[in-house]
Amino acid sequence: MKNWLERIYNGIIKENPTFVLILGMCPTLAVTTSASNGIGMGLSTTAVLVLSNMLIAMLRKIIPNSVRIPAFIVIVAAFVTMVQFLLQGFVPSVYQSLGLYIPLIVVNCIILGRAEAYAYKNTVMMSIFDGIGMGIGFTLAITIIGLIRELIGAGQAFGRQIIPVADSAAGKGGYVPVTIFILAPGAFLVLAFLIAFQNYLKRKAAKRAHRPIPAATCADGCAACGNEICGKPLISEEKTEKTENKKEVTTEEKSEAKTEVKTDEASDKEALA
């Protein structure tokens, strides 16, 4: 088995960051008003993801465990700013249409998530391929969402008019665009249906194989990102460093907090199953 191929397959299909892991929702919803915006965002994120995965894998023996999250954040932020300058200088149109969401790539959970879950533990080459796979998976996902929204909302694809639009003033018949799809509510709507469709496929496949029906992905992707990957470990670990005298209280409270969240999630899964 070619390992690197497996990594790319994993990123695009098995652990697609958008549809399966449900990570990086902010850009997924915000910039998908058109397919070309989706591609621009996806490729920028891919670039940052590959570079940060590479560097973090290189430095994984040097970065101490307890300060790894701040180190990741610095590395990611630096790459994001570099990508931002490059876009501004060489592809100003993309830079303009993505605007605020370029610097916000820093807090895209996909990047910190991959750094933590993969790059920090694996070799440089594999981490690069993991970044490529995840990046392509993300790019494909948001391009598809963008395309659907653009097509229904404006009758266009990649900025070109595909379906002739009705013009009542000129007395011309045609397609009346459902504008709401390119507005904010449309983003939620399209994503809801795509995930529901995917749940449906999963359930069907599971039924055919007589496997137990998997619980719907629900919000645990998000919660997991917030709890386990990005937030919690950073805090609890740094805390043990910084407030050593209060260690006992801290761990106690932390575990309490964690069980609270866990039970919440568990009950949710129960409700779903």
Binding site: L183, L189, A192, F193, A196, N199, A219, G221
Partner: peptide, 28 residues
Amino acid sequence: TEYNNIPESFKGMPITLLTASLMAIAFF
């Protein structure tokens, strides 16, 4: 809406997103 009877595939994330979509319309 926790105990509402909704289609299996929409349980969890999709129904939450649909709710968000309706809220976004209201906020318009």
